Amino acid sequence: MSEFYIGVMSGTSLDGIDIALCEIKEYSFELLHEASYPFDAEAKETVLYAINNPVTLKEIGELDTRLGEMYANALERFLLNKKIQKESIKAIGLHGQTVWHEPNGAYPFSIQLGNANVVTARTGIRVVSDFRGKDIAHGGQGAPFAPAFHHYLFSRLEGNIAVLNIGGMANLSILGDELRGYDTGCGNVLMDYWIAKHSNTPYDEEGAWAKSGTPNKELLKELLKEPYFSKEAPKSTGRELFNGAWLQKQLENFAWKNQNTFYTKARDIQATLLELTVISIANEVKKTPTTLLITCGGGAQNGYLMQRLQEELSGVEIVSSDECGVSSKYMEAMAFAWLAHERIHKKCVKISSVTGALKDSILGAIYE
């Protein structure tokens, strides 16, 4: 029996709202329609401000509703443009916008904003949201969840397979007898920050600006000393660590230590940041028996980044998930459509081996 689910995802890059309509049967999963809508520019600035500055409860509450309205607007456009009858949709899987992820504190939590009550009130479709809380309550990281979906999609393939998603952060899924996975660290987030700071563009298309520069090897060594990179899994991260303030502090410390020798052009910093993403990923892949690396996410569209990754992993075959019949751009939106399906059918998501939770859980809250 076919059921139809919509997945909605806006990641740490804050570059858009991806929406995917998926048909799910007992033994098959198909992406039927997809679209991406711009993330409201003013809302993006508000989100970034909330992440990087003290804010009031009033501001958080208003931002929660504002993002809910933004998701609802995008969904209404999607339903209209694709001529989808809302009565045919079993549920919407809404991840929401992460503003803080703190699974290791005295009182662990992860906050995603985007009021699901607003979305279901506007669309008239049930919504599944708050996917991360139960895993954290059971002692897990609450992230990444993509490995469970990657296992569902690709576990039938032969060989030593890993899946790499490069969004704002990068996460690695290692498929095998026991599913493993974790955030390797920064993906696009620092490169996006740096190019936006120095030009009127949100990202470095095809890595062209980075390619025009020369990486500073000594600076790269300093950046790689960030304790997160050497931390053992399970682990997860986000903008609460890797952000503009982190980068500026690293640059200032490096300049102070090398007062007489440090002078680097902005494009050389960009080249160094691309190397940071590449090397931090490659170091983790090299710890595994991976022979086939399937890539997805915005970073998979960065030709120069993929070229450098292949050079660092010369013994590994690297392919886009598109070559495996799965959209690399809409992978995460599809994942939350699938997670909504699992929640509606009260299925535990087998993710504890990734997150470190005490047990697998039924994930998500249903908003009728």
Rank of each mutant, 00 (worst) to 15 (best):
H341M: 03
S314F: 04
A121F: 14
Y49I: 07
R132N: 06
F29P: 00
E312V: 12
W246V: 01
S230E: 14
W246M: 01
I6T: 05
K211D: 08
E102L: 11
G244I: 00
G159C: 08
R66T: 09
S88G: 07
G93T: 08
G96T: 10
I60Q: 06
N283W: 11
W338Y: 10
D192I: 13
E323P: 08
I111C: 14
G207A: 00
G142V: 09
E59W: 09
C348G: 01
N52I: 05
E240W: 08
E232W: 01
L190M: 04
Y71E: 02
M169E: 06
L223H: 06
E158F: 10
N188M: 08
E102F: 06
C296H: 04
T65S: 11
C296S: 13
I89L: 11
A337G: 06
V349C: 00
E226Q: 13
F149T: 03
V118I: 14
F39A: 03
V8H: 10
A41P: 10
V55F: 00
E30M: 10
K329N: 14
A337P: 00
A282C: 10
M169S: 02
P234Y: 02
I174W: 03
I161R: 02
N52E: 14
I51C: 06
E275Q: 13
A266N: 15
N302K: 04
I279E: 06
A146C: 02
S212G: 06
N243L: 01
P289D: 14
L224H: 09
K287F: 12
K235V: 08
T46N: 08
L179P: 08
C348D: 13
L172S: 07
S199Q: 09
R156N: 15
L241I: 02
F78Q: 09
Q141F: 03
A35G: 05
G68C: 02
L219C: 07
I318T: 02
F254Y: 05
I19M: 11
A146N: 03
T261F: 12
G298N: 08
G133W: 01
L175Y: 05
M191T: 15
